Computed example of a mutant assay.
Amino acid sequence: MAQTQEAYKKAVSTLFSSLDRVESHLASTSNSGPYYYGGSITEADIRLYVTIIRFDPVYVSLFKTNKGMIRFQYPNIHRWVRNLYWNVPAFKDTTSFEHIKGHYFMSLTMLNPSGIVPEGPVPDILPLEERVNGA
């Protein structure tokens, strides 16, 4: 948790630089499959999924990482996470947006003393076939 504006700015810049690298990797022609390293799910997919699936519903507002949202600014990451959620049952079956949002917004009282859980984004994750225009 950043204690100064300067620390926050540095952390947010680092985070979005990392998202830019992930976006570029997923866009590259050397990535010949629906998963991070091609045609097979790897540990990288699992580890990245747990962060990306929480990004728009929690991190954007609670952690003030609001320079962009996955669904609007990162089309390749968005396509990748939706593919995992909708096409690989293990991901969808173990993802509870209600629990994710409730846990973060109600337990981090320093960041959210009122315990209010935001309504959006709605829907939590878009259907796989839906196209999204960038903001």
Rank of each mutant, 00 (worst) to 15 (best):
E23Q: 05
G39C: 07
L15M: 13
T109G: 07
W80L: 01
Q73L: 11
V22T: 11
R71D: 09
S107C: 07
Y49N: 05
T109Y: 01
T109D: 09
A44F: 02
K64I: 02
F105I: 10
E43D: 09
S30D: 13
R21A: 15
N31G: 00
N87I: 09
V12Q: 14
G102M: 03
S24F: 04
L26G: 02
L15I: 07
T94E: 10
L108G: 02
E43K: 08
Y37D: 11
F63S: 06
I100N: 08
F55H: 12
T14E: 12
P75A: 01
F72W: 07
F91E: 01
V12W: 06
G38Y: 11
L48E: 08
G39E: 13
R82N: 12
K92G: 02
K92M: 11
Y8R: 15
E23Y: 04
R54Q: 15
S13M: 08
N87A: 12
G68M: 09
I70K: 04
K10L: 14
R54N: 15
H99V: 14
Y104P: 00
Y36T: 03
A11G: 01
D56R: 09
L15R: 10
T51W: 06
K67F: 11
K9W: 00
E23G: 01
V22S: 02
Y49R: 06
I53Q: 03
D56N: 12
A27T: 00
M69V: 10
N66R: 04
K92V: 03
S17E: 15
E6Y: 00
Y37E: 11
H25T: 09
Y37W: 13
H25F: 05
T94G: 08
N66Q: 04
Y36K: 05
K10M: 11
N76F: 02
S17D: 14
T109A: 13
N87D: 13
V12G: 03
E6Q: 07
T29H: 07
F105N: 11
G33L: 10
H78I: 00
F97G: 13
L48G: 08
D45S: 04
D20K: 12
G33A: 10
T94W: 01
Y74D: 08
Q5K: 12
T109R: 15
Q5H: 05
G68E: 05
P75I: 00
L19A: 01
L84K: 12
G33R: 08
F91P: 05
G68A: 15
F105V: 10
I53K: 05
E98K: 04
D93A: 13
R82Y: 06
L19P: 04
F63Q: 06
K67T: 06
Y35T: 01
P34Q: 14
V88F: 00
L48K: 07
Y36V: 07
T94L: 06
N66P: 03
T14G: 02
I70W: 03
E23S: 02
T94V: 00
K9S: 13
A11V: 02
P75V: 00
Y104R: 01
G102P: 13
F63E: 07
Q5W: 00
H78A: 07
F105E: 11
L108A: 09
F105W: 08
S24M: 10
G102V: 03
L62R: 04
